[in-house]
């Protein structure tokens, strides 16, 4: 009897690999993508196209006095962090975090980083939120 070649039993079908990130992560990645396109367009238009050369504390504070633009920034913060870190997770899952244990550790670590960034970003926006 010929022993099976080492490692061959662990090869997963291509379809299973493609969906390894999970269904909800896939869905949220698309929801946040749509939010980011809309909010980023508003953010770039108001912050950078219309105010190029004018940026400063006063200029930014003037815009953040409008509730709707602060709301856009909060959406950008939350959706951006989720989309960025989940995207990073999808890349890393392909290279080193291939086992179930490592994949879970990665997810936990990224949630910690993401929540920390969210708390820090909210702190930075706090005077305009309240």
């Amino acid at each position: 009897m010929v022993p099976a070649e080492k490692g061959t039993g662990r090869v997963k079908p291509a379809v299973a690999r493609a969906h390894r990130g999970g269904m909800w992560a896939w869905l949220f990645q698309r929801i946040t993508a749509a939010l980011l396109i809309v909010c980023l367009a508003i953010h770039l238009l108001f912050t950078h196209i219309l105010n190029i050369g004018q940026l400063g504390y006063e200029n930014v504070a003037e815009r953040l006095a409008h509730t709707s633009l602060t709301a856009v920034d909060i959406v950008l913060l939350a959706a951006g962090i989720y989309h960025a870190l989940n995207g990073l997770r999808m890349v890393l899952l392909d290279y080193w975090f291939t086992s179930r244990g490592r994949a879970r550790a990665l997810a936990v670590a990224l949630w910690v980083v993401g929540l920390a960034l969210m708390v820090y970003g909210t702190w930075a926006l706090w005077p305009w939120i309240t």
Binding site: Y57, V60, A84, L85, L117, Y120, W123, A124
Partner: peptide, 19 residues
């Protein structure tokens, strides 16, 4: 995507200098 992840983190830190 990877460039934008790094930029986002840098952007959050840089703009937070407002506080």
């Amino acid at each position: 995507g990877l460039v934008l992840v790094l930029y986002l983190i840098a952007h959050i830190i840089v703009t937070s200098t407002a506080r």
